[in-house]
Nucleic acid binder design. Sequence first.
DNA 1: CTGAAAGCGCTTACAG
DNA 2: CTGAAAGCGCTTACAG
Lengths: 340, 340
Amino acid sequence: MKRKVTLKQIAKELDVSISTVSKSLRNSPEIGVETREKVQAFAKFYNYKPNNIALSLKNRKTKTIGIIIPEIVHHFFSTVINGIEHVANENGYSVIICLSDDSFDKEVLNMEMLANGSIDGFIMSLSKETQFKADFHHITEVINQGMPVVMFDRVTNEILCDKVIIDDKSAAYEAVQSLIDKGRRRIALVTTVDYVSVGKLRTDGYVKALLDNGIPFDEELIIKIEDVETCEITISQLLEDKLIDAVFAVNELFAVTIIKTANKRGLKVPEDLAVIAFTDGIISKYSTPTITTVSQSGAKMGNKAAQILIDRLENEDENEDENYVTEVIETHLIERESTD
Amino acid sequence: MKRKVTLKQIAKELDVSISTVSKSLRNSPEIGVETREKVQAFAKFYNYKPNNIALSLKNRKTKTIGIIIPEIVHHFFSTVINGIEHVANENGYSVIICLSDDSFDKEVLNMEMLANGSIDGFIMSLSKETQFKADFHHITEVINQGMPVVMFDRVTNEILCDKVIIDDKSAAYEAVQSLIDKGRRRIALVTTVDYVSVGKLRTDGYVKALLDNGIPFDEELIIKIEDVETCEITISQLLEDKLIDAVFAVNELFAVTIIKTANKRGLKVPEDLAVIAFTDGIISKYSTPTITTVSQSGAKMGNKAAQILIDRLENEDENEDENYVTEVIETHLIERESTD
DNA sequence: CTGAAAGCGCTTACAG
DNA sequence: CTGAAAGCGCTTACAG
């Protein structure tokens, strides 16, 4: 077991000073060619690699990005991480990931932990509980300490920082409009409870599309699901009572459950019931029938978020004027079998 | 913008030495109660938190775990990360994640990067390319430097270290046996190319189950898929030519494709064709029909891997005798609609 | 009871 | 051309 070699050890072996070794390895012209080559050869032989922690302490930058997300077992968030990771890696950054499990306390704890020198900046999506409590002091604090934060998807207007989002409202509008274009009139919305910012925006888009098309907006066609496990009953009732001919679901889990429930009740998708889901994921692609979705390119969001953060990190001194950007990622409808 | 406060600043403000501040904050009895309280109050007021990087350098441990996996947009790997993350967090560790994208070079690069002081130990699953090349020098090197490595799922016998796996062979055996028990005789295997260790083991289990039941083993019923995109044609041919009544697929993507292809050809699942998939994921649960799977509890694997690594980390000095463990996680069949 | 010093592994301005 | 010193932010054995 040969432990990693340090500058100190090389210096001792070669009987030169640590400074000389350090400079030689960075190939500084300050040092004589002969010495430089000797040191470099020796270092190469012993596979010397500088210690990241020491560099971090010295440079006061870690070259790592902290990611805080509600959960990872979720196709959308995985694709975002994927997107972040690739851009980060290309730029010599690592990513360190913490999960809030949609809990406010875990989110705060994790942020505090990472903020104490472990990372250079954050990319995050708010936990449900944080959105519900609307308590963002932990984020403000981090920003006040001069650490850049980029929020994506589940963001809040109460914090000023860079953001990467999709236009949830207009994407929802587009989806509903497409249903209307196909002659559907009784369109239900299956959504989550209101305090999740994106849920509210999608509802707004839904309502606007209806009204713009002169379709009366019926409060009873909006179903708010608290818990995925129990949603089947709620959905069953919706199908039973309301004579609907289309559903816009705010995620694909709801959508696939709707399709299965409809099938059980003898309704055919898309003939009797058209279904569109928000967020294109693995389920929609492999469900039977496959589901038309609003693609919400997680990879692109991740790329963009990482790019923005890194840009800010690398130009920290230059533009201290904080002109925060809000990047809106394009969405588009992926037409599949669940709409005709 | 108030930057994070350091010991030095507190010392200066309070006109005491840095040592005194440090000791006071750790509540050392060495320091007078009055001084201690004064310092603590001040630190609390300024929300002092020690700098992780400085601590890491000093203690020569980072309290972070490096995870190297082939990809993250994959339900199984997400669940493993989830499992790791939770145990890690409970024990005060963070996780830093790097993706190899199934590339040997990226795997090597990422490991080297993290091994230079950024982390205390690795949890990893081999990239396809690494398994193909059977080149593990980067892992040996890390281990030789005294950094513990725990491998999971895609492991190799050529490296001695702790491992967390499932018994792929016997799990496959069990799956195929269950098909036989249901009266199926012409059972096809849809698998990946051979160099992925788990693929080979699952094939072994399949063959053994057939032979143990006196069913002739027909080489032509084993289909090796290189590329998911083009597999539909191959599968279509299988269904056309071979008069099979069941399929065992080594992953759920293959399984769902088989079902869809069978449907197109007018075959009904499970009546005409029973289907079992390895690895329980989101697709199997929401496919129509839902798919019977071999559950491969990623969360449990992650928990265990993290536990093993942390145990090793925390007892580093005590037991220098390296008695590596290989933990075998239980699997079980989750019966759903695709088998009757 | 308090503080100066050494050290973790590095870099760099400065002296010689 | 080479090296001693200071410093990044901390801890701790030791001196006073």
